[in-house]
Write a protein that binds this DNA or RNA. Structure first.
Length: 469
RNA sequence: GCCCUCAUCGUCUAUCGGUUAGGACAGGAGAUUCUCAAUCUUCAAAGCGGGGUUCGAUUCCCCGUGGGGGCACCA
């Protein structure tokens, strides 16, 4: 069996979005599954719409997702190979050579300053109502595409088409096919939106005297709300957005794998190595999938929960550093060990690292807001002022070294007064954090330490005595 | 308008002619916990319509309908 060679061929004309990422991912998975080669080719022939900044976005996104390429532009550990150059803007000579081959074979001609690919068959003129002009059609049998995912597809191709524009630039169809031939691509895995181009490509392959590679057209990702496929402008479409929001790339990758593919059983959250082992083209779905940010968020949380402490803290710190808010700055200004303790205390409680700055804000400043609704509710129940006074007295001498020590202390106090832990919890939390949500109160005390806890409680008690805290 | 393509809970999907149509996300209820989450239990939720083929169709075929994509000297 010949070597599998697949390629991902983005054009740096916009941002790198979910759909592109999944196409890249499926190519990468197939290469890794078969032990083949994953090629990154940059389709930057359209000079108007390309930029170096966009190119960098592609590299960054692929790297972040962990989709390393074996051949292509050299970036970090990826790239290299002897089928280059891998940027189409540097392959002008190759295209000219191939166009000449077509001319020599009588399959290309010039008209209106452009070069056209010539279809072989009987010609006739017909008025095209849709385009409102007379066009020359060519009679030839339908082009047959044997697609690895969709089976046999037939498409009619009945007009010559431009392969080099009058300004001298080769068009997409030509460069795509030429590069796939020159780079010895064995399988073309791309979005279904290209299916209608494929007949042109098959004809071109044959025009060059080549057998077309295998095709696999994967279903599209539809936007979450409203009609149509997901595009750059849609909410949640951009990979860099997830990167910025502190999503775990392995969670996004896992989620993306499940959009159009599944292992054949009920498993969803799986290590990438297992997905690589099981992935195959015939297992890919044929129908389009709608993007679901809730499921992505859930997947991210599941991965986040199981992160080792060091990685979680690093992830959190990176996110805080990118977040330019007073709360984030205050957090970073504190002692690294304290920051770490706060983050680890919060790890099991948040759905994403993006929640962390707001969720942990009161740890890093004494100047936190008291939630009025929570305050009214807590102050209305039982005798919170008395409970608070008891706590202040007790905690002055209590052991703060561990969660269990704090817990035992408060439980003992509650038992002594014939009350429950809960009778102290709400008021303590309110006084120390201003809220009714947060990590365990015992962990919160341990991390904040006696001085801070007592200071906040005394301040709250004083305010409550004078009126409203 | 023409061409191609797809069709199971709201969403992602399993089923490859015989199942109480399964799982996950989201939603409801309950349990647990010091709050909030998480977790566990549980409920509700689907074969687009019409014809065939077959002893039997979600599954195979045809026709509708609906969704999606494409019809450039864009990629």
């Amino acid at each position: 069996m010949s070597q599998v060679r697949v390629r991902f061929a983005p054009s740096p004309t916009g941002f790198f979005h979910i759909g592109s990422a999944r196409t890249a991912l499926f190519n990468w998975l197939y290469a890794r599954h078969t032990g083949g080669t994953f090629i990154l080719r940059i389709e930057d022939t359209d000079k108007e719409r390309n930029s170096e900044a966009f190119l960098q976005v592609i590299y960054d996104s692929l790297n972040w997702l962990g989709l390393n390429w074996d051949e292509g532009p050299k970036v970090g550990g990826s790239g290299g190979g002897n089928h280059g150059p891998y940027r189409q803007s540097e392959r002008g000579d190759v295209y000219r050579q191939y166009v000449n081959r077509l001319r020599d074979a009588g399959r290309a001609y010039e008209k209106d300053g452009a070069i056209w690919f010539k279809l072989l068959g009987e010609r006739y003129e017909v008025f095209d109502d849709h385009r409102k002009k007379t066009v020359t059609k060519v009679k030839l049998p339908p082009v047959v595409i044997e697609d690895q995912i969709r089976g046999r597809v037939e498409r009619m191709e009945d007009e010559d088409f431009v392969i080099v524009r009058s300004d001298g630039n080769p068009v997409f169809h030509l460069v795509n096919v030429v590069d796939d031939i020159a780079m010895e691509v064995s399988h073309i895995i791309r979005g279904e939106d290209h299916l209608s181009n494929t007949s042109k490509h098959v004809l071109l392959f044959e025009g060059f005297g080549m057998k077309p590679p295998a095709f696999a057209h994967i279903p599209l990702i539809l936007k979450q709300n409203g009609p149509g496929k997901m595009s750059k402008r849609d909410q949640g479409a951009l990979i860099e957005e997830y990167q910025k929001r502190g999503y775990l790339p392995e969670a996004l990758v896992n989620f993306l794998c499940l959009l159009g593919w599944n292992p054949g059983d009920d498993r969803e959250k799986m290590p990438i190595a297992e997905i690589v082992r099981l992935f195959d083209l015939p297992g890919v779905n044929q129908s389009n999938a709608r993007f679901d940010d809730k499921k992505l968020a859930h997947m991210n949380m599941a991965y986040l929960l199981e992160q080792p402490a060091d990685r979680f803290v690093t992830l959190a710190r990176d996110f805080f550093q990118r977040t330019d808010t007073p709360a984030a700055r205050a957090a970073l200004a504190t002692d690294a060990a304290f920051f770490r303790d706060v983050m680890l205390l919060s790890q099991p409680k948040v759905k994403g690292v993006e929640e962390l700055p707001a969720y942990t804000a009161y740890f890093f400043t004494d100047d936190f807001a008291i939630d009025a609704k929570v305050r009214d509710k807590v102050m209305a129940k039982g005798d919170p002022k008395a409970r608070l006074a008891e706590l202040i007295e007790l905690l002055t001498t209590a052991d703060f070294s561990s969660d269990t020590a704090v817990e035992e202390t408060i439980k003992a106090l509650a038992a002594k007064n014939g009350l429950g832990f809960g009778d102290y919890q709400a008021i303590a939390r309110l006084a120390v954090s201003g809220s009714n949500v947060g990590p365990s109160i015992t962990g919160m005390f341990r991390v904040l330490g006696r001085e801070r806890v007592l200071a906040r409680m005394r301040r709250f008690a004083a305010a409550a005595r004078d009126g409203q805290p």
